[in-house]
Design a protein around this nucleic acid. Sequence first.
DNA 1: TATGCAATAGCTAATATTAGCTATACGGGA
DNA 2: TCCCGTATAGCTAATATTAGCTATTGCATA
Lengths: 210, 210
Amino acid sequence: MNKKRIIIFDDDTTRRDSLSMLLNMCPDMECVGAFASAADAVTHVAQTEPDMVLMDIDMPRGNGIDGTSRIKSAYPLLPVIMQTVFDDNQNIFEAIKAGANGYLLKKTPPDKLLEQLREAFDGGAPMTGTVAIKVLQFFREEPVSPSYKLSEREKDILKLLVEGHSYKMIAAKSNIAYYTVCNHIKKIYEKLHVNSATEAVKIAILQRLV
Amino acid sequence: MNKKRIIIFDDDTTRRDSLSMLLNMCPDMECVGAFASAADAVTHVAQTEPDMVLMDIDMPRGNGIDGTSRIKSAYPLLPVIMQTVFDDNQNIFEAIKAGANGYLLKKTPPDKLLEQLREAFDGGAPMTGTVAIKVLQFFREEPVSPSYKLSEREKDILKLLVEGHSYKMIAAKSNIAYYTVCNHIKKIYEKLHVNSATEAVKIAILQRLV
DNA sequence: TATGCAATAGCTAATATTAGCTATACGGGA
DNA sequence: TCCCGTATAGCTAATATTAGCTATTGCATA
């Protein structure tokens, strides 16, 4: 297999050099470019034709998030791994939204870093543990949304509705009469201030009621 | 430092034994319990006082998701790592919602597994690469999810449907005949492989088609 | 104990949705 | 040029949903 071509964006000269050396020491990778700014990121990518981009997030000019966005617009399939000293939520989610394939902290030791890059080549999404934690937490956030005070039964029924079941199917699955399903759903609509199944499903999903 | 106490829930006897042996071979870990069902998960945790739980997700009785929920209600800080053969979205998000701290595939090789467990002890969130990918995709504006090849018009109509409009309202808003709306929606259902508005809305939202 | 709420069950009538067709017009590609 | 796909429009028949009611049971609690 050919060596994987990697380019680096980092404003710190020392770090740029060490990363480049580290990569070139690996039999399966090579650094084909190292730049101090992401301002001309797309041009650099076009010229160097890399298999992966290692992008510093905290650069004074041509910041890493923007650079990543632009690269991803032009080359959606090219993996971009972000590196940063900060693992605050803002940075992480900005990076993810910009399309980054992974998010590593700069303190990641060299051996780990290489391992993570290889994982990214295999289609994985390398993430520093603390980053993964934050990402997971995001999913667990209790929705700050208004509490609709649905009863347990109503939540059950709503869940089945969201899953695409008809009233009849819900009745069968819940072992209650069709008419009872109607009544539960009427109550649900009332509490959710909607009057159709589609609206209820929309609210249920977006506000994580199910 | 004391050995980390780990308990296992897995319905497969062979796997339970090998995991337990693997853990006991490590100088820094020990398996202090291995159970075939998560039905009495909380009781088992109370009795064995583990530092971590390794939970199989696909167990016939006392399923892993429920077990995890119950454990997390009783012991919110106890790390629970899910293991499964499947990395489908449903499983992953269910597990995360249940409060799992990590999500590993069963095909993870032993050395990697131990490494990931240690990461979890350090407060990280071990995730198999493909799982991390799916989690990240969830955040992105445009996920690379299966393309249903909806035409622009169909996307418009679907959007209006998701917003809770009836066929009539969609017709009015789009300045086309009611019958045309019917036909677009028929096409959409065909492409999305569903046959009701609720299912279409669910897919549209979860896969960010709108 | 009286009250209220959740869950159950039922009915009817008005609408809405879904599936099955046919059919025309327009544009792009083989 | 002919064919295909998209957008448009139409019809019918079968189902499903929604809104309007009433009513019983059981449980919690004021």
